[in-house]
Design a protein around this nucleic acid. Sequence first.
DNA 1: AATCGCGCCTGACGGC
DNA 2: TGCCGTCAGGCGCGAT
Length: 271
Amino acid sequence: MPELPEVETTRLGITPHILGHKIIDVVIRQRKLRWPIPRGLAQKLQGQTIQAVERRAKYLLLKIETGTLILHLGMSGSLRILPANTPAEKHDHFDLVFNNGLCLRLTDPRRFGAVLWSKEPVEQHKLIQHLGPEPLSEAFNANDLYSKSRGRKVSVKQFIMDGKVVVGVGNIYASEALFLAGIHPKKAAGKISAERYELLVSSIKKVLAAAIEQGGTTLRDFVGGDGKPGYFAQQLNVYGRTSEPCSTCGQPIKQLTLGQRSTYYCPNCQH
DNA sequence: AATCGCGCCTGACGGC
DNA sequence: TGCCGTCAGGCGCGAT
């Protein structure tokens, strides 16, 4: 499932092929994604040139003169660059066709993704405007996290997965970052010291940056057709490793559920 | 204001 | 082999 590192890697992969190029066709095969693809979108995009390819949280932002195309990959979405005439397969819902003979194609079996349009400055868009800081920016720091956590009774894992607190920390990397920081996922956010938040912030940054770096080397081929861009198998210490020995102490990794999400941790290393 | 839990959707997987 | 139930999961949203 695309977490922030996959989305960022996707951004880096598609940018050179679409930046500065003109959209000559828009193909919508399935409008029913998480929200319907808006009516009239094709006409808004037709003939426009991509001026920037940005990312906010897990939203990809394709900026053109008159507004911003917002893309989200949901659970199972992926974007590829293909020759413009590549036949569509099942789950290929949306194409942008460019004047360089290439096509940006959205594939999304579960359709939790989204294709939306923002006319106003995209920072003011409903889905964007209330988002917390980017995890890899300086705005995300221990002071900020600590002050936001005071009085909060939710588990620290749910807390760092809350997009108003910090964006882009998904289920996998939340478990991984807490493992690195030695913090038990169930511990109440409001009961964690400033010192430990210092460690947690650096762990989140470290885990995400490492995954993005690995993505850059693993996911090199965005052009071509060989199936989906295989999202990289990140080295994971705890996620999905129930009963396997902890890489630090050898104790079996445990699993629990927090906020309807499976959560993995080492009962010996995390408190 | 904070918290809880629903729902969207399909593929994979286990049991029979 | 085939059918069916269950689960995973991002994240906005409505209810409490």
